[in-house]
Nucleic acid binder design. Structure first.
Ligand SMILES: [Mn+2]
Ligand SMILES: [Mn+2]
Ligand SMILES: [Mn+2]
Ligand SMILES: [Mn+2]
Lengths: 230, 230
DNA sequence: TTTTATATTTTGAGTAATCAAAGTATTATT
DNA sequence: AATAATACTTTGATTACTCAAAATATAAAA
């Protein structure tokens, strides 16, 4: 039904409009994400809006309708199941899986996807810890906090990495900062804007606050000063 | 490099020009194989010829150059490895594998293909018994004879089925006429143009000569009347 | 409030692939 | 040899996607 081009627009739009209730995604942002010029994005978005998958507000931006979100979630499901499949079954490097899945997500049939899902045991997260939408288009989003929010001495487990670039993922892997790894916060230095985290059985790693924020963890250790339950 | 459209033209061209030394594939034939009108095929073929992948002779037809053949063989390799992968690893029905591979063959990367090849143990034939070209673009084509050439009482093993349509493949599977199956020729009736073949442990199957010719077998039993070595 | 900078939209044009229908060449039939 | 049938090519138009550059609206600065 939707072309591969449109599927890409929808997916990027979905990812971008998360955690922004009612806010519109600006055209420049979308264009950059999809990798086209702003003019191209404007034209495509108008076509997408005409087919009822998004609402377009000139000079303000664009936002998916319910139908658009559902379609986007199906693309996202294909993408994330494929990523896990590439890593788990074929042994592809997790830093390359994203780029590979970016192509495959548009040509895989429902039948093949169902077999992959079965083979993987109906998984709930992809290799980066990103949740996999159900075949019905439901997505459970557990609220996680990040490494940047923890304090010296805290111990936690990495649940998710929110940067798909292969450079960052290669760095994360070589440091041992991968999903399911246990890490201890050795030092925090708010003034310098950096922390030191030590993955279990590995060397401590220095992380800027920006980098630390890309690692989502569980359980979210209680913050030092203010505890909810006294 | 080559678009998915051109890859399809090249692959069909290669399949069609096999066993025809120097003969040109007529446009109408190619158009039917690719599923476009004759005019479209003419236009595309001229473009393909301009890029050096084929030689086009107006009103006569088209033939791949060496470069075109090499590219076609790489597409064919992807196609056949994917078919086997879909059947062996994902458990897709072999009658559907062809159609699935038809799409995937254009988006799979060299890296992923290499992992699939490894996982399958560098196979030499696909689920239909079709030989898989090497990564260097070499193809060994063993000469086989067909069920239609055998005689009453002959026993042989099915090596290859030369019809990709899912209806025919479903019939073949339900009859037990699949690659590696042993079959005995129970009756031949040249006048009626039909034979009766019995797969090991199955019911005998009636086959027209046209249908029988689609099953290639090995070993090729010596023909009854004239033996090469007396 | 006028001017300037930034973001967005519009316009005009191009590429890749396709079809329907009209035109042309090549065979086959009479 | 003239005619009819067939195969092939050409023409003109369409769809989907894209970009560069000009035009316009909005927000920021002076
Ligand atoms: Mn994609
Ligand atoms: Mn992912
Ligand atoms: Mn194909
Ligand atoms: Mn095959």
């Amino acid at each position: 039904m939707a072309s591969r081009t449109i599927e890409n627009y929808l997916k990027q739009l979905w990812l971008e409009q998360q955690d922004t209730r009612g806010k519109y995604v600006p055209m420049g942002k979308l264009a950059a994400l999809v990798g086209v010029t702003a003019g191209t994005a404007t034209t495509m978005v108008k076509a997408i809006a005409d087919s009822g998958l998004a609402k377009y507000a000139p000079r303000a931006g664009v936002r998916l309708t319910r139908a658009g979100e559902q379609l986007a979630l199906h693309v996202l499901r294909r993408h994330r199941l494929l990523e896990l499949f590439l890593v788990e079954i074929l042994g592809i490097d997790w830093s390359d899986a994203h780029a590979e899945a970016e192509e495959l997500e548009h040509v895989i049939s429902e039948t093949v996807l169902a077999r992959i899902d079965l083979l993987l045991g109906h998984p709930s997260v992809d290799p980066h810890g990103d949740p996999i939408p159900s075949s019905a288009g439901k997505l459970e989003a557990p609220k996680l906090c990040s490494l940047a929010e923890l304090h010296t001495g805290n111990t936690t487990i990495i649940a998710r990495i929110v940067d798909q670039s292969s450079e960052f993922l290669r760095f994360a892997q070589s440091s041992g900062l991968v999903p399911k790894a246990q890490v201890v916060i050795e030092h925090t230095n708010p003034q310098a804007g950096a922390i030191s985290a030590r993955p279990d059985g590995k060397e401590p790693v220095m992380l800027s606050m920006v980098a630390a924020a890309k690692f989502l963890v569980r359980p979210c250790a209680a913050t030092r000063g203010k505890r909810r339950n006294k």
